[in-house]
């Protein structure tokens, strides 16, 4: 049970790091003090992931097309391993995300959350809300005209 909760937590921060704009991660990373000591387990590698959809939105899966993804794995000097799969082709983004994943499993988690994850989450939320507010303004209000024969 505790393991499942931990996994959910980790899933959340890894997902956030994957969706974060690369330049945002880079900037905030410097504020965090840059890279800690680490060894590379898997050097940043650019690849593709086949995105799938479902026929009729709910039916049989089909291949929609690929997206670019960069992955990286690192080990901190304390032995903690971090992984990253991030959208796009920015190798620095993948390395920093893997390091952040590792640091989040150490006692520096609070610091990383405050300086990196929380601001990124706020940024993405803000962007989403800005679009949602614009979409809401284009919502149609229908009104029915009085019909002549009634």
């Amino acid at each position: 049970m505790a393991e499942a909760a931990e996994q959910t937590e980790r899933n959340r921060w890894m997902s956030l790091l994957a969706k974060a704009p690369a330049e945002e991660v880079t900037q905030r990373w410097e504020a965090l003090g840059g890279d800690p000591e680490f060894t590379v387990l898997r050097a940043p590698e650019v690849g593709g992931v086949m995105v799938r959809g479902r026929a009729g939105a709910t039916g049989a899966p089909f291949n929609l097309g690929e997206m670019t993804v960069t992955r990286c794995s690192v080990r901190l000097s304390c032995g903690t391993v971090g992984h990253a799969y991030v959208q796009g082709r920015d190798k620095g983004h993948a390395r920093r995300a893997a390091l952040a994943d590792a640091l989040m499993q150490t006692d520096r988690a609070g610091e990383v959350r405050a300086a990196l994850l929380a601001p990124i989450e706020a940024l993405l939320d803000g962007r989403r809300q800005a679009r949602a507010a614009r979409a809401a303004a284009t919502k149609v209000d229908f009104f029915t005209m009085a019909r002549g024969e009634d």
Binding site: V46, G47, V49, M50, V51, R52, G53, R54, E66, V69
Partner: peptide
């Protein structure tokens, strides 16, 4: 590009 895998259906 190397293929890392396939996503869950969106």
């Amino acid at each position: 590009l190397p293929r890392f895998g396939a996503s869950e259906p969106v």
